[in-house]
Design a binder for these strands. Structure first.
Length: 581
DNA sequence: GCCGTTTTCGGCCCGACTGTTTTCAGTCG
């Protein structure tokens, strides 16, 4: 049982209670409890087990008792009973865009809809459109929601698979028969979502390794189990494949299993040009080759060297120019997580965060950062308890006081705001108010259905405001959940370039926005990047891990990323745009 | 269901859009 799993149970209870038409405030109490459990700084699972949850705001008597039962037995009877009333499949209906509790309850009560499959049937048959409050357009939208969800089925975001990767790697590393191990595939290439996980191990006893692999904790299904490879499904639904090779084969196998397929095809054709064939195990001479001895490869670097290439970092292996760059010695030295000196775009309890200013600042210092930007929501984001001018001024005051305290430690909090971009591109705060801040992140939080032209114009207008330092989550997408709104990214990049506006990589694994595919273009136009965790808790700061991977995938170096600058230089950089120099 | 207190009940976050209606319910951020 993890904190995330406990939170998920509470969140599901809230949904089921909503279906029953329970008191909305009771429902909110469960949702709040879920947030608290997930963001708790400390071992909430251990506390729950020990029945030691007293005094945590948002977890009252009832939730304490339920979390204790859940943590100590792994089950919660209250939850099981609720699920039994509606069936297990009902919860997945909440994942369909445009479908909330009221509609689900109506579909359940009148048409017996209990799953996505049921929903599709009644939408296609026209039954759904006849329900009160429903219509033809509703049914059409729901079908679209289903197909969006389905086209992303069996895909997982980074934060869902990263802990699994760590766990499996650890298990294999500790195995007495394993000498080397790596994760390959799209995970290693740093893709924003993956559909399965590929592991590679070197061993002289593949049988023993595979035996332990298919019996590791969490395996619910063994899809295949042979002499050198096995494939399992974990309780999280993630498919994991393990391939075991010899130590001599490991390097070529790692290149092969890391891909991408397109990248590998180019490598193999380069091998043929040199008289060798390259497969997942080794280079071998071809029949009409030049007779040159095929190279022996112990490391990935040996494979690339044999092909007269610089080593290509896994993130770049998408056949989008990396081979040419490697041939000409132009592979950039990519930014690394350790290069970050701080970050911007973080929230506190003042808006919708879980930690106080001081807690966030101290967590940042623990990470080893020199600065932390605070950008709570602005007043138009009611749902997030956005700050008005008065509350913002009070926060700035508090930040100045804390800074006086932190100065001797060489740490600084930057006072900022995540200012809403309004419908016409105007900003939620006046220039005078923004001038009193150290920086501004401008973001879109509503009216997602504007036309591409309107949305682009709206965002560009914000970019042109001299007080807007950086643009937040440019497309508004939530990976595997909500597509981006319509917006013309090249025009946005052009405007950011012309105005010296920074574009963020929102490192929240649900967003990873702006997408890595655009960064090469942005970099060529001189646009700087900020890797921002959009943290809503102290733990959220760790999300820069995902952001740094995306920056690497976008070919960015430390020179391209503003928050690699040390404190003194970043202060200056923040002033550059507003002072027009 | 939680919180806080002018303690043991009363209040708990706001506004806009969509698609359904013909004044509003549901969903979303």
């Amino acid at each position: 049982m993890t904190a995330e799993q406990m939170a998920e149970v509470l969140r599901n209870i809230a949904r089921l209670l909503e279906l029953k038409g329970e008191n909305p405030f009771k429902i909110r109490a469960y949702t709040t409890g879920a947030d608290v459990a997930e963001n708790f700084s400390g071992d909430i699972v251990a506390k729950a087990k020990a029945n030691d949850l007293g005094g945590i705001k948002g977890i009252g008597d009832a939730l304490q008792q339920k979390l204790h039962e859940l943590a100590s037995t792994g089950k919660l009877e209250f939850y099981e009973k609720l699920k039994a009333e509606f069936g297990d499949g009902i919860l997945e209906l909440f994942e369909v865009q445009g479908l909330g509790a009221k509609k689900i309850a109506a579909l359940f009560a009148t048409l017996g809809v209990k799953s996505i499959a049921d929903l599709r049937r009644v939408c296609e048959s026209g039954e759904a459109a006849k329900l009160p409050g429903f219509g033809a357009k509703t049914a059409e939208k729901l079908l679209q929601g289903i197909s969006f969800r389905e086209s992303h089925a069996h895909e997982f975001r980074q934060e869902q698979v990263a802990p699994i990767v760590m766990g499996v790697l650890e298990m294999l590393r500790d195995h007495p028969d394993v000498s080397r191990v790596e994760v390959g595939g799209s995970y290693r290439r740093g893709k924003e979502t993956v559909h399965d996980l590929d592991f590679l191990a070197a061993s002289r006893r593949p049988k023993e390794v595979l035996e332990d692999f298919v019996h590791m904790p969490g395996v619910t299904q063994v899809l295949g189990h042979g002499e050198t490879k096995a494939s399992v499904v974990l309780d999280s639904g993630v498919q994991c494949d393990l391939r075991v090779v010899t130590n001599d084969e490991f390097a070529c196998a790692l290149v092969y299993f890391t891909g991408s397929k397109e990248h590998n095809i180019v490598l193999r054709s380069r091998a043929l040009e040199r008289g060798w064939s390259l497969n997942e195990y080794a280079f071998t001479p071809v029949a009409n080759g030049n007779g040159k001895e095929p190279p022996k490869c112990m490391e990935e670097a040996d494979v690339y060297r044999a092909l007269d290439l610089e080593v290509v970092p896994p993130e770049l292996r998408e056949n989008t120019g990396e081979i040419e760059a490697a041939e000409e010695g132009r592979i950039p030295r990519l930014v690394e997580l350790q290069n970050l000196r701080g970050c911007f775009h973080n929230h506190t309890v003042a808006s919708d965060g879980a930690a106080t200013l001081r807690e966030m600042a101290e967590a940042a210092q623990e990470v080893g950062w020199q600065y932390l930007g605070i950008a709570d929501h602005s007043k138009s984001s009611f749902q997030a308890n956005g700050l008005n001018e008065t509350r913002l001024a009070a926060q700035v005051e508090e930040i100045r006081k804390l800074n006086a305290e932190y100065e001797k430690e060489g740490f600084r909090i930057f006072a900022g705001s995540e200012v809403d971009i309004l419908k016409d591109g105007a900003l939620d705060f006046s220039d005078e108010v923004m001038a009193g801040l150290d920086y501004v992140v401008a973001s879109v939080h509503n009216l997602f259905t504007l036309s591409e032209a309107e949305m682009t114009k709206r965002i560009i207008k914000a970019i042109e405001n001299p007080y807007v330092t950086m643009l937040g989550h440019v497309t508004g997408r939530l990976l595997l959940s909500r597509p981006s709104y319509a917006v013309n990214i090249p025009e946005i990049i052009e405007a950011a370039s012309a105005n010296g506006t920074i574009i963020e990589i929102n490192a929240n694994p649900w967003r990873l926005d702006m997408d890595w595919r655009w960064w090469k273009m942005a970099k060529e136009k001189g646009v700087k990047c900020a890797i921002n965790p959009d943290a809503h808790s102290t733990r959220g700061l760790q999300d820069v891990f995902f952001g740094a991977r995306i920056a690497r995938k976008g070919w960015l170096t430390r020179e391209d990323v503003i928050n690699c600058l040390p404190l003194g230089q970043v202060e200056q950089a923040l002033r550059v745009k507003r002072e027009g120099k």
